[in-house]
Amino acid sequence: MQTFGYVKPTGVDKAIGQSAGNFIAGGTTLVDLMKLSVEQPKTLVDINLLPLDKIEKLPNGGLRIGALVRNSDLAWNADVKKDYAVLSEALLSGASPQLRNMATTGGNLMQRTRCMYFREPSAGMPGGYACNKRTPGSGCAAMDGFNRIHAVLGTSEHCIATHPSDMCVAMAVLEATIHVQGPNGKRTIAFEDFHKLPGDTPNIENALEPGELITFVDLPKPVAGAKSTYLKLRDRASYEFALSSAAIVLRVEGGHIRYVRVALGGVATKPWRSHEAEKALLGKRADLETFRKAAEAAMAEAKPRKDNAFKVELAKRCITHALTLATA
């Protein structure tokens, strides 16, 4: 238990001025992690009064989503449902209605892994489980521990933690752009560059600089004539993180795939855009055989551990079936 300060600024400038603090939006990740002593902010900067809670059409035909837009509001937004159905589906497959009512777009981008070792209060501390994400250099207890939910793609010898978000998988295929504002001004980050592979610095999870605030997420103009789907596989029917998920956006013309974006969730250390799958699909006939080849290609580099080997086959079925659904 740690005492902490609390401020609730009304303007973006004020919020980023407080760069030493941790932003709190919906609190559904942060408060949990504070209770577990994983996060120990000195000051909480509550950003809920910032004017970042709108969804607006952009002049270029895209959509601008404020960082504080709640997951529920985003999922049920008429434009999102019509033009970016994959995002709506992904959001609604996640968590529970109560959580989605609190969770924000910015918070969802920043949610942290569900690795059970990482979430132990004393992980990375002397006497606690080894965890390089908590304390670089301390080791990784999950590597030879209970690692059923861990990643098979994008792992390193230092960390195999899965990125748990559903929303982010959809944003990966939508090729979103993240707007941030920090002490050094505003900048944008391409979605694919936002989340970082663990490599030998699993403690660094994204491209944000200290004190930078996510302000908006922009979605480009919807791809004309494209279909999409989000398929999430897990043990039970609801209220569970993905063991494997796939987001697909594609356009088929004359039986051939002319545009395709594939991203995977639940199996990788970051929201996983599969260029390998896309390469195997583009220009090919939209049939089961092609889909299977794409699934093989997507998982070719998978590195399973003791308990998560099943994810390789599960992800292949997930990709194949998602492609089947998207082209149906």
């Binding site: 569900r114 059970m116 070792y117 521990g145 209970f146 939910i149 043990d235 039970r236 029917a237 609801s238 209220y239 569970e240 993180f241």
Partner: peptide
Amino acid sequence: PINGNFADYLVTTCAD
């Protein structure tokens, strides 16, 4: 008991 919480220890939900 490493999955000692309701996110990781799965019980039947209404949807099941």
